[in-house]
């Protein structure tokens, strides 16, 4: 029994937010939200009695290097009551990577926003403690950005190991 499909969301959403665009990808409804309206849209999806997306399944950052806006934050919401998923996408420009935090609405956003901050440098305004979660605190940069080099050190072979080991730092007693 299908309790709700994408058309139901598409009926309700334009009434409250007429400018917001939606599209479908492999059966999942994607809602392109400007970041100024993110809190309102999320609150609408959570509190409307016909939708009730009460669970934030996951949240992640994406780096589309060379595209404008460069970053994107993707949220997946689940409605237990109507057994339906929806995806929110928020574009984030590189020069001002700020997105309102959803921690007040869904506590599960707390650590995942910290991870997106750690890996991509996206700042979630209003987050209770936006610190690094995976990398050490003195780490510089954001490692999952596409412009960070992939390898960490040159691979040592027999023909070049002497030069590499001459520069490498080894621990002493």
């Amino acid at each position: 029994m299908i309790l709700m499909d994408n058309a139901t969301v598409r009926q309700h959403l334009p009434a409250a937010f007429p400018q917001i665009q939606t599209n479908e990808f492999r059966g999942t409804l994607r809602i392109m939200v400007p970041r100024e309206q993110l809190l309102e849209v999320a609150r609408f999806l959570r509190d409307t009695p016909e939708l009730r997306y009460i669970f934030l399944e996951n949240l992640c950052g994406v780096d589309y290097l060379g595209r404008e806006p460069r970053f994107e934050v993707v949220y997946h919401l689940l409605s237990f009551e109507y057994q339906h998923r929806v995806c929110l996408k928020v574009g984030v420009p590189e020069n001002d990577p700020t997105v309102p935090s959803l921690t007040a609405m869904w506590p599960t956003a707390n650590w995942q926003e910290r991870e997106a901050y750690d890996m991509f440098g996206i700042v979630f305004s209003g987050h209770p403690s936006l610190q690094r979660i995976l990398m050490p605190e003195d780490w510089e940069g954001h490692p999952q950005r596409k412009d960070v080099p992939l390898g960490y050190e040159e691979v040592a072979f027999t023909f070049n190991q002497d030069q590499i080991y001459a520069q490498k730092h080894f621990a002493k007693e």
Partner: peptide
């Protein structure tokens, strides 16, 4: 694991 997350040989930190 030649990447940012892993120490490239534990000899960097202990003999």
């Amino acid at each position: 694991y030649n990447n940012y997350a892993i120490v490239q040989g534990v000899d960097e930190i202990v003999p």
